[in-house]
Design a protein around this nucleic acid. Structure first.
Length: 428
RNA sequence: CGGGGAGUAGUAUACCGGUAGUACGUCUGCUUUGGGAGCAGAUAGACCGGGUCCGAUUCCCGGCUCCCCGACCA
């Protein structure tokens, strides 16, 4: 992404760089009065997000960078398993929702009326759009399997939004839909998606538990939810302390302290968790609802077995903050940090730091450069709040040694590095 | 949607039925510069509507918004 700023091009994206004085956001010293959760407090104070109303946030320059980092990881892994990215409408005609029954059964569906009193819905999931869309191109079994996905805004008319980014009325989500000739082929792909999901969370630095959960209104089958343990979450799960068994308490037939039904060895413990992803076996419901099928090898009409796979990108951003912070601020994992380096100058003469800023860009680092003239203490406090994983400090003290000081956000140790060695050192 | 709490400078808060105070921010000047610097001056405020009252930011009613607990969250 390229944006124009003060006459120069500023690249926003993987190799973004920006001067702190040019950021239109500022860090806030006070806790926001209307946010109680860690993720909302730090993200607001550090200038990553701004609340428009309950459950609806703007993503500011630094926040958008992190959101895009997470999005990119998700995109790479979905592409890697054959997902084809598309972008579907958010504004839907009521008819498609009435056809599947969801118009009356899905309470969280946002419904709106046009000037001419026509009914519309805002997308909260897109089976109603994607099924006719994909099946229009599927004539025979030879056209399957197919998987398409999109990354975009979803709307849910929650009675109570809460917990900052963890439950919004509007949120950023990846939703994928797959179409298969039969159950075995679906099961094969289902497993591939589960593995891809685990890889995504691992890349971000999170541990997600694959949790058995309700299949929802339309399905008797269980679904799987990907749960990250955090007290800020809304779900209660039971998990085995020996094997990987994990179940949502909603459907659990057991309680905390019971023996694990899977390995018969471990004990089940209860924990709070946030659902960052889910996978559903939709069966033939949507094919049948829309009466859209394909011809099998005998020329007979069959309905596809479908799956849907959600992954909450904005929620993940909140969960990451819940998991990675200290009393001073956020500690971004390297994979999703808005930028790689926080370059801070406190030397009287800015020249060396200015030059380093250029050099680091050329060398492929993304950099936030604090070239402001506020006190050193304030810069450190801001830096800790924003939470970029690596801090590079230029001061008169370090310059005497022809050096800069490097400090990891998650450590108290500092390291003097010769300026000549800096790039090499950072690339290690 | 049920229950509870709260709306006061840009932000966070205090007191009060009769001049609305403090901190941070912001602006000006001087001094500072390795963990949210110091001094001096300046700036700026009662969610909306109705009622009670001589007088309401304060009390009462309604609305809106935010937060928390619960319910809800295919």
């Amino acid at each position: 992404m390229i944006m124009w700023l003060f006459g120069e091009t500023v690249k926003i994206g993987y190799n973004s760089f920006m001067k702190q004085s040019e950021l239109f956001t500022k860090t806030l010293r006070h806790l926001p009065a209307d946010e109680e959760t860690i993720n909302a407090q730090f993200l607001t104070r550090a200038g990553f997000v701004d609340k428009l109303m309950a459950g609806v946030y703007s993503y500011l320059p630094l926040g958008l960078l992190t959101l895009k980092k997470i999005e990119m990881i998700v995109r790479e892994e979905m592409d890697a398993i054959g997902g084809q990215e598309i972008l579907m409408p958010i504004l839907h005609p009521a008819e498609i929702w009435k056809k599947t029954g969801a118009w009356t059964t899905v309470d969280v569906l946002f419904k709106i009326k046009s000037r001419t009193e026509k009914d519309y819905a805002l997308g909260q999931s897109e089976e109603e759009v994607v099924t006719p869309l994909v099946m229009a191109y599927v004539d025979t079994y030879k056209d399957l399997p197919k998987a398409v996905y999109q990354i975009g805004w979803k709307f849910r008319d929650e009675l109570r939004s809460k917990s900052g980014l963890l439950r919004g009325r509007e949120f950023y989500m990846k939703d994928m839909y797959s179409f298969h000739v039969d159950q075995p082929d679906f099961d094969r792909f289902y497993d591939i998606v589960k593995k891809a999901y685990l890889k995504i969370f691992e890349r971000i630095g999170l541990v997600a538990k694959v949790t058995e959960a309700s299949g929802g209104t339309f399905s008797q089958k269980i679904s799987y939810e990907f749960m990250v343990l955090t007290n800020a979450g809304e779900d209660n799960i039971l998990y085995c302390d020996v094997c990987e068994f994990c179940v949502n308490e909603d459907i659990a037939k057991r309680k905390s302290g019971d023996v694990c039904p899977k390995c018969n060895q471990g004990k089940l413990s209860q924990a709070k968790a946030s659902e960052v992803g889910n996978v559903f076996d939709l069966g033939q419901k949507y094919g049948k609802d829309f009466d859209l099928g394909f011809k099998d090898g005998n020329g007979k009409k069959q309905y596809p077995i479908m799956g849907c796979y959600g992954l909450g990108i904005s929620r993940l951003m909140g969960v990451v903050v819940e998991k990675f912070h200290d009393e001073k601020g956020i500690i971004w994992p390297k994979a999703v940090t808005p930028v790689d380096l926080h370059l801070i100058n406190i030397a009287k003469d800015r020249k060396i730091a200015d030059k380093l800023y250029e050099t680091l860009q050329t060398e492929g680092f993304s950099v936030l450069y604090d070239e402001t003239s506020v006190s050193a203490g304030e810069k450190f406090a801001n830096s800790d709040l924003i939470g970029i994983p690596t801090r590079v400090l230029v001061s008169d003290k370090t310059l005497k040694e022809d050096s800069v000081e490097i400090k990891a956000r998650n450590s108290d140790k500092t390291q003097l590095v010769k300026i000549k060695e800096l790039v090499k050192n950072l690339k290690q």
